[in-house]
Amino acid sequence: MLKLVLKDFQIQKKSFLNYAFIATFLSFFFAMSGMAQMTFAMVTFPIVYGFINRALYEDEKNNTLRLLVSLPVRRKTVVHARYVSAAAIILIMALVCTAINILLNAFGVTPLQETGNGFIILAFSMLAMVFLISVYLPIAFRLGSIKAANINRFLFIGIFAASTGASIALQRIPKGQPPEFIIRLVSMFQSISIVEILLILSAAAVCTFLISMQLSIRFFEKRELF
């Protein structure tokens, strides 16, 4: 399985330069816009998503899934390797961003408070990535990466529309008169610490990731590649 995981990185050697460029550009953009704490979250998202998308696309473009299933490798192993490489890239990006954050803080470039907020935003964005990948990968294993990317596009549009709609709806709530359930939700969150929220979400993300993997295995084992 390790060879399959490494393969996902090796076939994208050339893309790392692009990723570095994207990271640099977005870092400057958010830092200049006064949203330095958003930098690492916003840099990680396109790189992680781009990496996974590219790995899937390379197999689709070259039809190399046909090669892999003709080797003495179980289809289950091919799926496991894809999930491990997805988890690996998320962890690598988290480590890289953390290391850079610590360095910048050590050199006094970023204030500690912003660093702390940056970590929290990074953690939430990592969890969001895990949830999105957990939805994306089973679709890719069922239908192929190109169709999955098209469906994913609608998913992102849907998420964007839902969050925009929610924010407009919240803005329209007359001051001092929020609905009962919102008051209860806010007081519930106020009673839980940010660490507890992160832990709960992390547990949910891991469960979703594992369920997603099982689903992908089922889809891929049934998929006719020829």
Binding site: K3, K7, Q10, K14, N62, L67, S70, L71
Partner: peptide, 26 residues
């Protein structure tokens, strides 16, 4: 040893890498 009708390889990788990748399974 199987040779398919069409050849499926990672086009951007070298012959050496391909041999090492596939060989590791046998």
């Amino acid at each position: 040893g199987y040779v398919s009708e069409d050849q499926y390889f990672y086009e951007e990788m070298t012959v050496e890498w391909t041999g090492s990748f596939i060989g590791s399974y046998f």
